[in-house]
Design a binder for these strands. Structure first.
Lengths: 179, 179
DNA sequence: GTCTATATAAAGATAGAC
DNA sequence: GTCTATCTTTATATAGAC
């Protein structure tokens, strides 16, 4: 079962961008790993930016679904579910968004165009609960950081797999951080 | 009281790299903000890399001091102090290291040369305590994430100042995450 | 769909005048 | 210390043959 070229390009690009960053990853590098010329690559994508868009399209949609759900509930009502959803997001096939959003060259361009910070804001609001104040916001951001960082740490230790035990542990730590 | 050119360059570069990333910040951009030519800039620094090194020299030394202290204690003994030290580090004049270490283009080059991940490892070890296991490591990374992310969130809300209340709150959240 | 070749722009860096 | 001018490399992207 052959994987089509478009998919291979995205896999290679995702890999390179994850380790080097978007700004420091060149079309030439991607083409080299692909085993073809740069021109061949431009047959499949009309720009470097389009490659980034293609990589992040599904992750963005998945995150949007998550934030839509979080926004529908009243703030603070289902904080634990939101944290669990974030853990599963980072552990799942859309994890690259969580990795890329730390890259300033992505943040500066793609993230602004796609309102990524707004979505983060929605998650925070849903964790904060009613009557927000500085303390609650700090705790909410702390909890979200635990969900993200804890999960990627667990994945690194578990060969890319998140055990149910680890998941439970991360969620508990995030809930504790939330106070 | 004039600020010397070298310092101005570092201030400008630190600013640009923070928002755009190292790989996406060019000498030309720095020179433009400086109000001089690129050649003038090369009189003060012989390469782009040297600018990065100069920016991070003090922060690296400060972090090393922190990890040396953490490594001297027996593991798990003074976890709260370590977390507090990390909060103050992120809130202090060396905060740019915490910002830069999220940039893959910095991680890929500078961080490897300077064993940044080793230093992170030392901090984790000092938080984990004796008889490490997966759970303890997850909790340690969670706590460290709270210290870092919580602090930068608090700084963003407080115009760059970390109030004593916020500091107490972040530390408490980190300790809770640690379990 | 892939190639070679090339256009075009931007990057890092240097030479030498002032 | 700063300038203009230039070198060299690398980047994104395209043209046109196969």
């Amino acid at each position: 079962m052959e994987v089509d070229t478009r998919t291979r390009i995205l896999d290679i690009a995702r890999d390179l961008i994850t380790t080097q960053g978007y700004g420091s990853t060149s079309i030439a590098q991607i083409a080299e790993k692909l085993g073809t010329s740069k021109a061949a690559l431009y047959y499949h994508f009309k720009s470097k930016e389009e490659i980034l868009d293609a990589i992040l399209a599904e992750p963005l949609a998945a995150l949007s679904e998550l934030t839509d759900k979080a926004a529908a509930d009243q703030p603070g009502k289902h904080a634990e579910e939101v944290l669990a959803a974030m853990i599963d997001f980072v552990a799942g096939p859309c994890s690259c968004l969580a990795a890329f959003e730390k890259d300033p060259s992505v943040l500066h361009q793609w993230a602004q165009r796609n309102n990524l910070l707004d979505k983060e804001e929605i998650l925070i609001t849903s964790l904060v609960g009613p009557k927000p104040n500085t303390t609650k916001i700090i705790r909410a951001r702390a909890a979200l950081a635990v969900a993200k960082q804890g999960t990627s740490a667990a994945l690194a230790m578990g060969d890319g797999e998140l055990s149910t035990d680890a998941r439970k542990e991360i969620l508990a730590a995030a809930v504790r951080a939330l106070g």
